[in-house]
Each structure stands twice: as C-alpha cells, then as structure tokens.
C-alpha cells in the first residue's frame, strides 16, 4: 500500500478561526451574485415543480386540490369539535394552514438544500444562496397555488378585502426574507451535522400543535398566554393571516417579527461568513 496523502491528525475543537473582513465580503458577494443570477434559481425552482407533477393530469393544481380538501375537511371537523362559530373559525383555520404550510415546508427543505444540490455544487461554481432562493421560489409558487383554495372562502364567509389586504405582499416578502436568512443557517448546520434534518422535522411537527393554527389563542387560559406571546411562529403566522383576513396587524406581532428578523440577519451573517468556504468539504 502506498500512502497517498500527507495525513496529519489534528483536533478541530482546539482550533479557533476568527472571522475576518474578507470572510464577510465574500459572504456578501455570494448573496449579491445569487440575486444577479436569478435565472438560475428561478429555473431550478420551476423545474422542481414541473418534474414533481409532470405525469399528473392536473399538474401543480393537485396542490390546490389537496389543500382545498385539507382546509374544508379540517374546517368542518375542528369547527364542530371545538364548537366554534364557523363564520370566524373557517377562515382563521384556512389562513393558518396556508401560512404554516409555507413556513414549515420551507424550513424542513432548507435543512438539506445544500445536501440535495450536491451534484451542482461540486460541478459548477455557484453562489450557495442560489440553492436557498431556489427552495424559496419553489415554495412560494406552491403557496400561490395553495392560496387558490382560499378564494371560495372569501365569498362564502364575506371576508373583507380592504386597505389591510395590501399588506399581504409585504408580509409574504418578509416571511420569505426570514426563511432565506434562517433557512441558510439551517442549511449550513444541516450540511455539517447530518442528524439535524430529522431533528428539525420532529420539532416542526411539535410546533404545529403548539402554534395557534387549528386553535385560537382565546381558548387558552390567561396564565398560559405567554406560550403564544413568545412563540415566534405564532407571530409570523399572524403576519400573513391578519392581512389575508382583512384585519390590522397587531403591534405585538410587528415588534416580534422585527426582533426575530434582526437576530436572523446577525446570526446568518456570522455563520455564513465563517462557514461559507467550508460547506463544500462537508458535502
């Protein structure tokens, strides 16, 4: 046997790497380049959807259909189980499920978005952010298909369309921004530690029940209200749900969303600057 490499064993834990200005500059460049090369992630994201539904008759409108079935069956079932007024509960549940679907799917898929793009990453020099944007683009398109299932409810329950409805687009953008920032963080950690993906998956499942999607916070005794107040998912859900229902945004939600967004940007900048050039070796 020939020894092929010069091998030295080192203990990585003792190693400390400082983040320099050039790390930040390269990380920043990565993000900027990803936006410049929008054709790439739009194409890849679009193709993901096309390939998934290629052999089906309805195409991506399967999404709309299955979302409609979920919303309408759950609306009736839980409306009666919780003995809620369907007039308010039905739209509440529908907007909750729609928004939750976007956020949860994106976070789960973010975790292995670098791992799944290995074939591209090892072949062509592309900004890493491209693969996050691809995932977001895909899930936003899916969200837009899903929203179609909500339209009949507007007429059935006379959901108001007013000035607050204008906030739908900025709210969606803000959610996508946060998915990008936190999704990138999850993608980096998920590439380094391969057991993260199943952990995130089960956390998301638990969060579904802890977050007011199917139930209303008003059902909760006062002393447990903190569980909603400090739940970031509850606020991001509100951010899109309230404009969809033609309601004003609560100030609580705005503050929480602002804080979480700033934290996310800081976390992302630090981690991405430090880890960006290492991601390839973790694949």
């Amino acid at each position: 046997m020939r020894v092929i490499y010069t091998v030295q064993k080192v203990i990585v834990r003792g190693e400390s790497r400082l983040i320099s200005a050039s790390h930040f500059a390269k990380a920043y460049q990565d993000v900027i380049n990803a936006f410049k090369q929008w054709r790439i992630w739009v194409l890849l994201g679009w193709q993901d959807i096309q390939l998934r539904y290629r052999r089906s008759m309805l195409g991506p409108f399967w999404l709309t259909l299955s979302m409609a079935i979920t919303i309408y069956s759950m609306g009736f079932l839980y409306g009666h189980l919780f003995k809620m007024d369907l007039q308010s509960y039905f739209p509440y549940l529908a907007t909750g499920i729609l928004t939750w679907n976007l956020i949860s799917t994106s976070l789960i898929e973010a975790t292995d978005s670098f791992v799944n793009s290995e074939a591209y990453i090892k072949q062509i020099k592309l900004p890493y952010s491209c693969f996050i944007l691809r995932m977001i683009f895909r899930n936003t398109v899916i969200f837009l298909h899903n929203v179609l299932a909500f339209i009949p409810l507007i007429f059935i329950f006379h959901i108001p369309i007013n000035g607050y409805s204008l906030l739908i687009l900025p709210a969606l953008l803000l959610i996508c921004f946060n998915i990008a920032v936190y999704g990138n963080v999850l993608a980096i950690i998920g590439t380094r530690y391969r057991d993260i993906a199943p952990i995130i998956n089960s956390l998301i499942q638990v969060t579904f029940f802890l977050t007011p999607i199917m139930w209303m916070p008003s059902l909760l005794p006062d002393r447990y209200h903190f569980a909603v107040h400090w739940n970031p998912f509850a606020h991001f859900l509100n951010l899109l749900r309230q404009p969809l229902l033609g309601q004003p945004l609560s100030s609580d939600t705005l503050y929480m969303v602002a804080i979480i967004t700033v934290l996310g940007v800081i976390l992302f900048s630090l981690l991405f600057a430090k880890a960006r050039s290492r991601i390839i070796y973790w694949l």
């Binding site: 490499y5 010069t6 091998v7 030295q8 064993k9 080192v10 203990i11 990585v12 834990r13």
Partner: peptide, 18 residues
Amino acid sequence: GGTLLKGAHETIIVKALD
C-alpha cells in the same frame, strides 16, 4: 467533558494540494 467519546471530534486533515 469530552472523555466519554474520545476521538469523536478528531478530524483528519488532508493536504490535498501542497
């Protein structure tokens, strides 16, 4: 304290190009 799984975070560094 890192005693239980000694070597768990030992990583081999390869000098692929020198």
